[in-house]
Design a protein around this nucleic acid. Structure first.
Lengths: 189, 189
DNA sequence: GTCTATAGATGGATAGAC
DNA sequence: GTCTATCCATCTATAGAC
């Protein structure tokens, strides 16, 4: 839709608040203050609060998709390397880029049905990327199990890091990703 | 605290609504209606909405702890069997017993600091159970990695099932748990 | 594009009768 | 222990001036 630089910046600030407080507890007054305007002015940029959430989630999922594609493009065809690259990319969008992807994952249910339907193809595209990479690893015999189950377990393990991992701690997001891959692929290096 | 049968029943109903709607979107009027009383009467049983959440989360964590302990008591000392038992117990409290444990996991951040501090020992006891079981599997050489990382990855994979798994589908929670254990322990049966 | 002002709705919680 | 009635805070969203 509308993707003015101004709106992009406002979306970025909204994402930050949504992660800190959760969507429901974030008021339009809080959003406006963070953006340096009054709450009434906010509705010049967004139709309503729902549209802000939709913008954040679209941004976050789009971003995750782009980062993952770039990561896959830059690495070899080796299934293990590709799996590692996906895990790293996922954590990068959660902790380095920050916020918007976290909102997409944890506040998806707060989208109204229309917005959810409109954005689901983005989420599906991202998950399809994962299933393809998992598939390759399965065919190469690196891991075993059902493609969808493995994908969802791995994504669950990665997503839940938001609840406990401190990116300013001793371990980098990349190391974290590598540890997860090592856990499910014990025969590799 | 107070654990009258009446309060237990109200807590159970509250858990159901909190899972369906989320804590923030659940109003005291909705809670009262589900309980068959008027909203004013609710405050005879609970000091405020926060106390309802605390009751649900205490119930959910307590329950997870009990189920897990019982499961461990009933199985052999074999590390693989114990890990499988823990995974099964975890999914059992999420999908069979239902609701209260889901609230404990997904709405913990909504607890006020006092309640959170008061309940954290329960959550810690449950996680300690996990770390101990993971530890045994590590020492037995069944899996590899850091004890805390493995625990959190596994718990993350299990917790995230709430977002996608349909317990009324073809796969039972026990089968799901077994698939996860197989994923990280590929050399076992 | 931002402001002030406020409408209109809904939320948590209380008081006091029964 | 439940009811009715209601207070009061707060929230989303709108209207119209600048």
């Amino acid at each position: 839709m509308n993707a003015s630089p101004r709106r992009k910046e406002l979306t970025r600030l909204a994402a930050q608040l949504f992660v800190q407080e959760g969507f429901d507890r974030t008021t339009v007054r809080m959003l406006a203050q963070e953006m340096g305007i009054k709450s009434g002015s906010l509705f010049h940029h967004f139709k309503d609060k729902q549209e802000i959430l939709a913008a954040v989630i679209e941004e976050g999922t789009q971003n995750a998709l782009m980062i993952a594609r770039k990561a896959l493009d830059q690495c070899a065809a080796d299934p293990e390397a590709r799996l590692r690259a996906m895990a790293r990319a996922h954590l990068e969008t959660l902790f380095t880029d920050r916020n918007a992807h976290v909102v997409a994952l944890f506040e998806w249910r707060r989208l109204d049905p229309t917005a959810s339907a409109h954005l689901s193809h983005l989420r599906d595209a991202y998950e399809a990327l994962w299933v393809a990479v998992i598939d390759d690893a399965l065919e190469a015999g690196l891991i075993h199990g059902d493609r969808f189950l493995v994908s969802r377990f791995v994504l669950g393990a990665l997503n839940w890091t938001v609840r406990w991992y401190d990116p300013s701690g001793p371990r980098s997001p990349d190391e974290l990703a590598d540890e997860l891959v090592a856990m499910i692929m014990p025969n590799a290096v």
